[in-house]
């Protein structure tokens, strides 16, 4: 049996979790304030995931980049692969919140969506 300390990142409370592991399986979690704690501990031990937030270029947009995020959390080890894919993306203004920027990013099955609105600049 092994004890592992984790900090839950499910919300800003940042509960300090004590995870009991036996035969590479999460046996027991204490310290959480809600049910998210157990789920987080389990995931963090087996397949840690994160939401990725970054920017993509918007041609002719104001602002000139749009903030974006993965619709769901993706495996932690895929973060930079996603960034590389997004480096090649250029949107055309206008962009709206929830517009799909790229589907199935880095083969995660998850879409990247816009989190802000960008207006189109007047090109006179």
């Amino acid at each position: 049996m092994e004890q592992k300390a984790l900090v839950c990142i499910g919300c800003p409370l940042g509960c300090r979790l004590e995870v009991t592991i036996e035969n590479s399986e999460v046996l027991h979690v204490t310290g959480q304030s809600c049910k998210k704690g157990w789920a987080y501990a389990f995931k963090e031990y087996t397949n840690p995931t994160r939401i990725l937030t970054t920017t993509v270029v918007v041609e002719n947009g104001y602002p000139e980049v749009a903030s974006v995020k993965t619709e769901k959390d993706i495996p932690k080890n895929k973060l930079f692969e996603c960034i590389k894919e997004l480096k090649e993306v250029s949107l055309t203004a206008p962009v709206h919140i929830n517009d799909i920027v790229i589907t199935n990013v880095a083969n995660t099955g998850v879409n990247v969506i816009a989190t802000t609105n960008c207006e189109a600049l007047d090109t006179k």
Binding site: C11, P12, I51, T53, T54, T55, S67, K69, I97, T115, T116, N117
Partner: peptide, 21 residues
Amino acid sequence: IHNGFGLQLFKEELTGPEYAQ
């Protein structure tokens, strides 16, 4: 533009611009 906003208020995890919107 990072996430983590609105968990208490909207019960979902939003980014800053989404929360503002």
